[in-house]
């Protein structure tokens, strides 16, 4: 009897793999939704009053509507299923404090935060590249690694305040509150970018260090574009950072940092909405943001995995550890 052919040869494997990953994605989102639901159920006090928050004096009609919307008179299991059902149809519920659907509350603020995080990411990549290129000799490596450490360790909000003190108040290069202008976006994005740049640069440099141990890599990098690809494909593998941790860190720093940066720079955005929702205990909005964060993270992971498999065929064995 001949042995079965190796799994990687079956044409269905990538599809199955993708399905598995999608399942994992759903699992994460389901977990987040469940955690949010549990939190909402366990919160002390009448949920209707809690959800209305400061706007305590509203008509009985609205209170009845909230009860109906959340099935508060049903048993918890029924309520839970109902809630999942609504999520499945994309209905995030309504913010009773703002009297707006949660999706539109979040949707209104998303562009501002996306702009901020996008520019921050761009800055971070540029800065990380510069740092990596600058770290050539032993001394410069040491200086660069100290700079990285400082960038990673400085609290985001403090960096922001220092940048404001210097570039807005002392030098006057940047406006302070202009919304919608690129110039006003520079400092907040830079603030958000610094810790991310520090991490990326650390990872890059470790990859380079590992690579420079091999003569072929050194020459390849010196040639430019080929070097970059080489760096990506061969060298960084030696850096021990777990990609999930790193992606989580990047997304986390960007989202968590956005709360602080938007507060420091008095910018509109998702961070401010989150903070306001927390302070006013606008739980439907809080839940919506939890879900958004979970979906974002899961999606990014999925995209990373897909890209990675696409770039490195050796991993298409269907047995990549998760």
């Amino acid at each position: 009897m001949r042995p079965d052919p190796p799994k990687r040869a079956t044409p269905g494997a990538p599809v199955r793999w993708l399905l598995g990953r999608l399942g994992g994605l759903l699992l994460v989102v389901w977990g987040a939704a469940t955690a949010g639901f549990l939190a909402l159920t366990l919160i002390p006090g009448d949920p209707v009053e809690v959800m209305l928050g400061v706007q305590a004096q509203v008509s009985e009609q609205l209170k009845a509507q909230i009860r109906a919307d959340w099935g508060l008179d049903d048993p918890p299991i029924a309520r839970y299923l109902q809630y999942l059902g609504r999520l499945a149809t994309g209905d995030l519920g309504e913010s009773y404090q703002l009297r707006q659907p949660v999706s539109s509350v979040i949707g209104q603020q998303l562009p501002a935060t996306l702009q901020l995080t996008a520019l921050a990411l761009a800055f971070a990549l540029v800065l990380a590249t510069i740092a990596t290129l600058a770290a050539r000799g032993r001394r410069s490596t040491r200086i660069v690694s100290l700079v990285e450490l400082t960038a990673v360790s400085s609290p985001t909000f403090w960096t922001g305040l220092v940048l404001i003190a210097v570039f807005v108040f002392q030098v006057g290069w940047f406006p302070i509150a202009e919304t919608g202008s690129l110039r006003a976006l520079v400092l907040p994005a830079l603030t958000l970018a610094l810790p991310v740049a520090g991490v990326i640069s650390q990872v890059l440099r470790q990859g380079l260090d590992a690579a420079s141990a091999r003569p072929f890599a050194t020459t390849a990098i010196a040639r430019g574009i080929g070097g970059g690809r080489l760096l990506l494909r061969h060298t960084l593998r030696h850096a021990a950072a777990d990609s999930v941790t790193l992606v989580g860190y990047l997304v986390g720093t960007l989202i968590g940092g956005a709360v602080l940066v938007e507060t420091v720079f008095a910018r509109p955005g998702l961070g401010r909405v989150t903070l306001r929702a927390i302070i006013d205990r606008d739980l439907p909005v809080v839940l919506g943001i939890i879900l958004l964060a979970a979906v974002t993270f899961a999606l990014i992971n999925l995209v990373v995995d897909v890209l990675y498999r696409w770039i490195d065929p050796r991993l298409r064995t269907g047995s990549v550890a998760t």
Partner: peptide, 28 residues
């Protein structure tokens, strides 16, 4: 385990590309 490191960087690039497109759209 070490073999998984490069993924992160690719993500960074991909997200940046996406995000810059959003930026240009949002800043007008």
């Amino acid at each position: 385990m070490p073999a998984r490191a490069p993924r992160s960087l690719r993500t960074a690039g991909a997200v940046a590309g996406l995000a810059i497109a959003g930026l240009l759209a949002g800043c007008t």
